[in-house]
C-alpha cells in the first residue's frame, strides 16, 4: 500500500490531505471530520499546525452564507451550538485516507450533540442491542 505517511514527511498539503478527512480512533466509532485546524504563530514567525478542530461550529467558519446560516440553525435546533473540540497534534497517530488519533483523544472529542441524541434514542426498545 502506498499510503502517505504522516511521520517522516517534510511536506503535507493541508487542504487536500488533512482538512475534511474522517477522524477515527482505535476500537471506537467515527470521531468526526477534520473540520478545521488550529494554527499557532511560532517565535520565529512561522505558522504551525497545533491541533485538529472538530465540530460543526468549526466547519461554519469555512462555508459562506447562506449555508453557514443553515448550519447554525441546525446546531441550535439540536441543542447547540457547542464550541469545537480540539485534538492536539501529538495525539494524531497516523494519516492515511483517514486520520487516526489515540483512543483517549477520540473519547475526549466525542460529540455533545451525539450524546444528547443518544439520551433520547436510548429509550426506544431495542436501541441497546448489538449491531448487525
Amino acid at each position: 500500500m502506498n499510503w502517505i505517511e504522516w511521520h517522516g514527511r517534510d511536506r503535507i498539503d493541508l487542504g487536500t490531505q488533512l482538512l475534511d478527512r474522517q477522524i477515527t480512533a482505535p476500537e471506537a466509532e467515527p470521531v468526526g471530520k477534520v473540520d478545521d485546524v488550529e494554527l499557532t504563530r511560532r517565535p520565529d514567525g512561522a505558522l504551525e499546525v497545533t491541533a485538529l478542530l472538530v465540530g460543526t461550529s468549526a466547519l461554519c467558519e469555512r462555508v459562506p452564507q447562506p449555508t453557514r446560516w443553515l448550519l447554525r440553525l441546525g446546531m441550535r435546533l439540536t441543542g447547540g451550538p457547542d464550541s469545537p473540540r480540539r485534538i492536539d497534534l501529538d495525539d494524531v497517530v497516523d494519516v492515511k485516507s483517514d486520520v487516526e488519533v489515540t483512543a483517549e483523544a477520540g473519547e475526549a472529542a466525542a460529540s455533545p450533540t451525539e450524546r444528547r441524541f443518544r439520551a433520547f434514542v436510548e429509550r426506544i426498545p431495542g436501541a441497546g442491542r448489538a449491531g448487525s
Binding site: 468526526g32 472538530v54 450533540t113 441524541f117 433520547f120 434514542v121 436501541a127 441497546g128 449491531g131
Partner: peptide
C-alpha cells in the same frame, strides 16, 4: 458528510443521529 457514527453494524444507540 459530518463524520458521525452511522450504520446498522453499530448498536442503534451508538449511532443516534444517524437513526434520527
Amino acid at each position: 458528510y459530518f463524520g458521525w457514527p452511522w450504520g446498522k453494524r453499530l448498536p442503534p444507540k451508538r449511532a443516534a443521529r444517524f437513526h434520527a
